[in-house]
């Protein structure tokens, strides 16, 4: 998997770019997309559980499928005032998560994107999962966009 910095930074970048045109991609909703970008990796709870000799991997890996992640997003969105909007932004984050994961070089099986309809796996084998240069580039792009956003906000406040 790309590390979580990449996942949340990519979700942020997409929302920030869209915010220049669509105000609905504001900071609060962007945070939801960033949260959504981590949802499929909730399966990593299994790593923590292993420390306590609880082995849940076989069950939790189902969360790393689009359908289970979207159901989880639906469950979370119930606890937001604007439920549909929350679900859409969490869903956007989930989409970016799988788009990034698909790019990774994997040995063995890919990702079960069509689970439970099909057990067909997918992976594009383009990026090494341990390449931290990707993290640096994505983080830099996010910082540039953040700065641009602040700059344009200040300009609009002055005028």
């Amino acid at each position: 998997m790309p590390d979580w910095i990449v996942h949340i930074a990519v979700a942020y970048i997409i929302c920030r770019i869209l915010y220049f045109k669509y105000p609905v991609f504001n900071s609060a909703n962007t945070v939801l997309a960033m949260l959504g970008a981590l949802l499929p990796d909730i399966a990593k709870i299994g790593m923590v559980a292993q420390f306590y000799s609880i082995y849940l991997d076989d069950y939790l890996f189902s969360f790393h499928t689009p359908l289970a992640s979207l159901v989880l997003a639906g469950l979370l969105s119930i606890f937001f005032k604007e439920k549909k909007l929350a679900f859409l932004f969490l869903g956007l984050g989930i989409f970016t998560h799988f788009a990034l994961d698909l790019l990774l070089i994997r040995v063995g099986e890919g990702y079960y994107l069509l689970f439970p309809i099909s057990w067909q796996t997918f992976h594009l084998d383009l990026i090494a999962p341990d390449d931290y240069n990707i993290t640096l580039v994505v983080l830099l792009a996010a910082l540039v966009l953040y700065s641009l956003g602040r700059l344009s906000q200040r300009r609009s406040e002055k005028s």
Binding site: L60, S62, T65, A68, P116, W119
Partner: peptide
Amino acid sequence: LALLCFYYASNY
């Protein structure tokens, strides 16, 4: 979610 987890664990 629980059904998806059980189906995944018992079939993958």
